[in-house]
């Protein structure tokens, strides 16, 4: 089984962006308001750490480095972003946020 516990949803404020290490895999979790997303820790643009530079508001996730933005319901790029954001499958069970982490989701930063 690769469903893994990320954190308790208790005390996880709406719109908050938080960093976790799950079985050695760094992730960033976002509370969309009862619905959660778990994403890789780096911006797909220039590897900016999203735990620090990521902001969530009104369905849109923003990396403040270059204002790349994504619809965090789907991970689809919006605005000036050039790549979609990757997301782990998530579910909430017994007050715990779980993510399906088989192996770390990563971006290819050197394009061929």
């Amino acid at each position: 089984m690769a469903w893994k516990r990320v954190c308790s949803v208790d005390g996880f404020a709406a719109n908050a962006v938080r960093k976790f290490t799950v079985d050695g895999v760094e992730v960033v979790a976002v509370n969309l308001g009862g619905d959660f997303r778990v994403i890789p820790p780096m911006c797909p643009h220039m590897e900016e750490p999203l735990g620090e530079s990521g902001l969530y508001q009104d369905g849109v996730f923003t990396c403040t480095k270059h204002l790349w933005q994504w619809d965090l319901k789907t991970g689809a790029k919006t605005g000036v972003a050039e790549r979609d954001i990757k997301m782990y499958r998530t579910k909430v069970e017994g007050g715990e946020l779980l993510a399906f982490i088989d192996k770390p989701l990563e971006y290819e930063y050197v394009e061929e």
Partner: peptide
């Protein structure tokens, strides 16, 4: 700049296209 961007996105809810700065 980081504090201002955070405020403009989270509180002012401005669209990224309406925020001008050179990083």
């Amino acid at each position: 700049v980081d504090g201002a961007l955070r405020m403009l996105i989270m509180e002012a809810r401005l669209s990224a296209k309406d925020i001008r700065y050179d990083k």
